[in-house]
């Protein structure tokens, strides 16, 4: 095991990084994927750490059996959301790891940026924002008040927040699960329908008061159920039926073949499901017109 105590801006290289753990308090942490290693090179997966700003306590860096850890003394993953006493320790850290390296980031007020990783990422932030770009695999982001912004994510995506909002732009997901109290949820994604049946993509959003705005491609295949206890529910998909009852406003039905699942449940939030343009050209034909798939659902 190799240890460093980093008390000043520095850059470090690591021969082999197969796992990354970072705990920060303030500042910025960015984890970027280095280009995929050339398989022919036969070299071990490498990583770099660049610390550009540092104030407060020094960072503790350790590297053991491919696991790179950047943290402060006595700051654990579990402690990230529980540390109520404000700390002034701040660092600006940029780390590159191989794209296939799974990572775990925990920050308090620091903002976290993750880009290009293919083996998933678990990110927790107290008040800091989380930015995810082109991340695939099992991705989870949890915040109290921090905002989560994601671009082009792919895989099993999970978001959880108290008041922090979530915006997801682009990408196609195997599953997207969002739980928030008051955060706004905005997502423009496609569902992966890998193999249909049990492999179908799913999208589940639960909020208390947060408004939910989703946009799915016009040629999506999903069974859809949108429900709000007191908020309005609207959709551009014409195949869905609206049922209004005293304490629930529900829009449900099938879009396309109905292989995937989309459910949105909210107490008082407004729910809007928009229809985007078709993603799959399915041959050279034009995008399928609205209401495509009614035939297959009625057969």
């Amino acid at each position: 095991m190799t240890r460093w105590t980093v008390a000043a801006p520095t850059a470090l290289d690591f021969d082999e990084v197969t796992e990354l753990n970072v705990r920060l308090i303030g500042g910025t942490v960015a984890v970027l994927a280095a280009d995929d290693q050339e398989p022919s090179s036969g070299a071990a997966a490498r990583g770099t750490l660049t610390v550009t700003e540092l104030s407060g306590r020094p960072l503790q860096v350790s590297h053991e059996n491919g696991t790179l850890t950047v943290s402060y003394e006595s700051l654990t993953w579990e402690g990230v959301l529980g540390l109520l006493k404000p700390r002034k320790d701040s660092a600006t850290v940029a780390i590159t790891v191989p794209a296939a390296c799974p990572i775990q980031l925990g920050v308090l007020s620091a903002s976290a940026v993750v880009a290009g990783l293919r083996a998933g990422a678990a990110v927790r932030a107290m008040s800091g924002d989380i930015t995810l770009n082109g991340v695939a695999g099992d991705v989870s982001a949890e915040t109290m008040s921090g905002e989560v912004a994601g671009c082009d994510l792919d895989g099993e995506i999970r978001f959880k927040s108290m008041s922090g909002g979530l915006t997801l732009a682009g990408g196609s997901v195997d599953s997207l699960t969002v739980n928030t109290m008051s955060g706004q949820v905005t997502a423009d994604v496609a569902l992966n329908n890998r193999g249909g049946g049990c492999g179908a993509g799913s999208l589940h959003v639960n909020t208390m008061s947060g408004a939910v705005t989703l946009r799915l491609p016009a040629d999506s295949d999903a069974k859809i159920r949108l429900q709000s206890t007191s908020g309005p529910v609207r959709t551009e998909f014409e195949t869905l039926r609206t049922v209004k009852a005293p304490a629930s406003h529900t829009v449900s039905g099938n879009v396309g073949a109905g292989t995937g699942h989309v459910s949105v449940t909210t107490m008082s939030g407004a729910v809007t499901l928009l229809r985007g343009s078709a993603v799959n050209s399915r041959g050279d034909g034009p995008p399928y017109p609205p209401g495509y798939g009614m035939e297959s659902t009625t057969l």
Partner: peptide, 10 residues
């Protein structure tokens, strides 16, 4: 750049 790019997009 990455962060601003994502934020702009979002």
């Amino acid at each position: 750049e990455v962060r601003e790019d994502v934020r702009d997009t979002v």
